[in-house]
Computed example of a mutant assay.
Amino acid sequence: MAKGKDVRIRVILECTSCVGKGINKESRGISRYITQKNRHNTPDRLELRKFCRYCYKHTIHGEIKK
């Protein structure tokens, strides 16, 4: 019914350094986090510093499309 007008939406954050390197022997995958954001307060793409378990350090994780 009101599915398209929800204020809080679920977003996926993906490690930007793992995506740039691609998947190789050093990096076994791509780190992803699921979080929520307020559509009205944050209309731009979200970027947060989170821990990447494949890079073994804190990196910038950016919002991706589903």
Rank of each mutant, 00 (worst) to 15 (best):
M1S: 01
M1V: 01
M1E: 03
A2T: 06
A2K: 08
K3H: 01
G4N: 09
K5Q: 08
D6E: 07
D6Y: 00
D6C: 02
D6T: 02
R8K: 08
R8D: 01
I9T: 00
R10I: 03
V11C: 01
V11F: 04
I12G: 00
L13D: 06
E14V: 11
C15G: 07
C15R: 03
C15E: 07
C15I: 06
T16H: 00
T16M: 00
S17P: 02
C18E: 04
V19A: 07
V19I: 13
V19E: 07
G20I: 09
K21R: 15
K21Y: 13
K21V: 12
G22Q: 10
G22A: 10
N24Y: 08
K25Y: 11
E26Y: 13
E26S: 13
S27P: 02
S27N: 10
S27H: 12
R28D: 12
R28V: 14
G29P: 09
I30Y: 11
S31T: 15
S31C: 15
S31F: 08
Y33P: 01
Y33N: 01
T35A: 12
Q36G: 06
K37S: 06
N38L: 11
R39T: 08
H40T: 14
H40V: 14
N41S: 15
N41R: 15
N41E: 12
T42G: 04
P43W: 10
D44F: 11
D44V: 13
D44T: 15
R45Y: 10
R45S: 13
L46K: 07
L46F: 05
L46R: 02
L46D: 04
E47F: 10
E47R: 15
L48Q: 13
F51C: 10
F51K: 15
F51L: 14
C52V: 08
R53L: 08
R53P: 05
Y54G: 07
Y54N: 15
C55K: 08
C55D: 06
Y56C: 09
K57I: 07
K57R: 15
K57W: 02
K57G: 03
K57P: 03
H58G: 05
H58P: 06
T59M: 05
T59P: 03
T59H: 02
T59C: 07
T59V: 07
H61F: 05
G62P: 03
E63V: 01
E63F: 01
E63R: 00
I64Q: 03
I64S: 01
K65Y: 00
K65N: 03
K65M: 01
K66I: 05
K66P: 02
